[in-house]
Design a protein around this nucleic acid. Sequence first.
DNA 1: CCTACTGTTACGGC
DNA 2: AGCCGTAACAGTAG
Length: 275
Amino acid sequence: MPELPEVETMKRVLEPQLTGRTIRDVTVNRPEVIAHPATETFSEILAGQTFSAMERRGKFLLFLLESGDRIVLHLRMTGCILLAPNEFPMEAHTHAVFHLDGGLELRFSDTRRFGRLWLIRAGETDAFSGIAKLGPEPFDSVLSGPYLKARLGTRKKAVKECLMDQGVLAGIGNIYSDEILFAARIHPARPARDLSPGEWERLAAAIPERLSYFIEKDRLTAEEYLETKGKEYRNGPYLQVYGHEGDPCPLCGERLCRRVIGGRSSVFCPGCQKE
DNA sequence: CCTACTGTTACGGC
DNA sequence: AGCCGTAACAGTAG
């Protein structure tokens, strides 16, 4: 469910509240959500540890601890991470609860149970979570028209699928790939190898521009995040194409089309994005 | 009852 | 090897 902008929101909301808090103990209701190490070890190692900072890498959320250990979280489709007072109603499908000092709990819930947690020890190489295979962050200065052309310029695959390739750029999923391609006026099904240098430039510009725009539109206070249980994304109303199949294009007024590309539902404007 | 779903990985076929 | 397409994961919503 969450892509880079939503994961960034979670990081910004949670980090100031979590820093300095200590984990008393960890309850795991569904052992399969702990991908590494074994559940008992996971809980034992974390008890007594204190949060020092948070980071986001692509769609991964990282909880850094003072010991140098870190918790890595990927929410996949329906995962949710909420910091709540002990008495706050428990969400259905809550699979792991970190009991903290100060009467707070950090709760991981996930209806479809695809989300995963990893614990990486200080000095241990994270060969488990998949972070090591990620491409650069979309805001990294290496992102440019020539970079995209060099990485993707020979691929026959649809440019939309290439944008969602986490090994090329980290954090872009189905929604924002559609938004980015609309902003760059490039049809999502175009084979990547057919794009011109000018189109790669437009794409390289649209990626950080659209992502920072949607991060900004998703801005939430800690109170709002708790009220909405971490599940409502405030940037939905600002999406220009995703979810707007059949609506008039905001730029040219033509009816937006939907098509399955690379197995994913895609929306685009047939007027602004020529195939 | 049937289909679709904002993510990722495994696997078979070429 | 590497690319491609599909199934699988599991639950809810329309």
